[in-house]
Nucleic acid binder design. Structure first.
Lengths: 237, 237
DNA sequence: CGCTTGCTTGAGGGGGGTCAAATCCGGTGG
DNA sequence: CCACCGGATTTGACCCCCCTCAAGCAAGCG
């Protein structure tokens, strides 16, 4: 029997030993609430490249990323793509006011997600203002990131874009996993280009340029940051 | 006596006859709550060009735009500017998690604002989940707009940017004031350029081009939209 | 191996930036 | 009412950064 690309884990997992417990939206809940929440969510696995939801789809669930990396993107009618963000463990997806998703989400590599059906989760929030406050906090944080990214897209050069991206990505990983040696880049060059508003060729050339300058070292599946100070200068704050 | 550039209106106004009553964050409150809120807010007027708050300032207040237009922007160390949005009556400013504003806000033309001191307003929200829900709703709406704008900044041509901006701006004004004839543009060409990630020259040239094509008509302080269908086609969805 | 897929490198061109000058326009004072 | 001034906008000439098109290369995998 061929394994499905999307598999739902049998019950038996518990929130209390969840890896993203302290980062995620759930950090606002006490032990009793967590036990209640356990019945609402189920773990789902996605294979590399799978689409979890698409723009304009009716929202039927909320999603809590537990493991892996996702690309969040919007498409223009002619196929041009803008990646509006990468989701990491702890990120909460699915909030909107129209009842439809306003971007698409793919798994990059394999991804594990904690999925909540919309109606019961909405009811769960209803009389738990502290959870609502936490959700609001995450939304505002995303808004801050979105504004920073607008500055990057509208006003930075290719060199600055790439340097800023590498430093920012590294920082997020450190926040999540603690100090790291080399910086893994699970997304493709095309993904990076579509995130930075560049072409794949320009991204590749800029990587090579940074390597020639001794700022980074290109390794399979990632980069090594050799000169953080120089990279910071290139990022221009 | 020379009039101050920032004037605080004496008390005596009431929320019940507020112009933005139904658009703003306050739409979630009942009559009793509104009367209570009246004591927390005060109306403040700003002259054209005045800065209401700056990026990195400690947040001491929240702001509800009552009248006028504001530009919200971020600066790079070398002075490059990205306008992240224009605020219109009903917009709510000041939410953040760091305790500092993450963008600056100027009045374009004269602006009237309903200002709330941070601490009392935060306390007011505390046990009013419906207000929190409303605030969350506004944050999510802004997030949606921010993502749309990322697509514009990263993946659209100058022509598409300008056409999209004109149609979007017109739409916002119609939503706010009902059907309008010509489209007022209170912001400068420089503001438009910094919003669209272009230079002032490119914006000017594109306006002229659209006029030559018979899509718009340039008038002092605004434009007339002559061919909405054509404009929509240029905006490329 | 040969094929596929992703990345890199090269050559050339164009969209939008830069620099500079002309024009428009609202405000001010005679 | 008109001449003048200063800032905003428009227009022109030129050029560069990044895109386009196309070929080479390395790694994974049947």
């Amino acid at each position: 029997m061929k394994a499905s690309l999307v598999t739902i884990e049998p019950n038996g997992h518990s929130c209390s030993d969840c890896a993203v417990r302290e980062f995620a939206v759930c950090s606002s809940l006490d032990a009793a609430e967590l036990r209640e929440l356990e019945h609402l969510g189920r773990r789902v696995h996605f294979a590399a490249g799978q689409t979890v939801f698409s723009e304009e789809d009716i929202t039927t669930s909320f999603y809590n990323v537990l493991d892996g990396v996702m690309r969040l993107y919007k498409l223009l009618p002619d196929g041009r793509r803008q990646i509006v963000g990468f989701a990491l463990p702890g990120d909460f997806l699915g909030m909107n006011i129209s009842g439809r998703h306003n971007f698409s989400a793919d798994a990059i590599g394999t991804v594990t997600i904690c999925q909540f059906a919309k109606a019961p989760f909405t009811r769960f929030i209803e009389d738990r203002p502290h959870l609502l406050r936490r959700i609001n906090e995450l939304a505002i944080r995303e808004l801050t990131q979105a504004r920073d990214h607008m500055v990057l897209l509208g006003r930075r050069s290719a060199d600055e874009k790439v340097a800023t991206f590498l430093l920012g990505w590294r920082e997020r990983l450190i926040l999540l996993k603690g100090p790291i040696g080399t910086v893994p880049l699970p997304m493709s060059r095309q993904d990076i280009a579509d995130y930075l508003g560049l072409t794949i060729e320009t991204v590749s050339r800029t990587f090579t340029k940074l390597e020639r300058l001794g700022v980074i070292e290109i390794i399979p599946g990632g980069i090594g940051l050799l000169d953080a100070e120089r990279a910071g200068a290139l990022a221009a704050a």
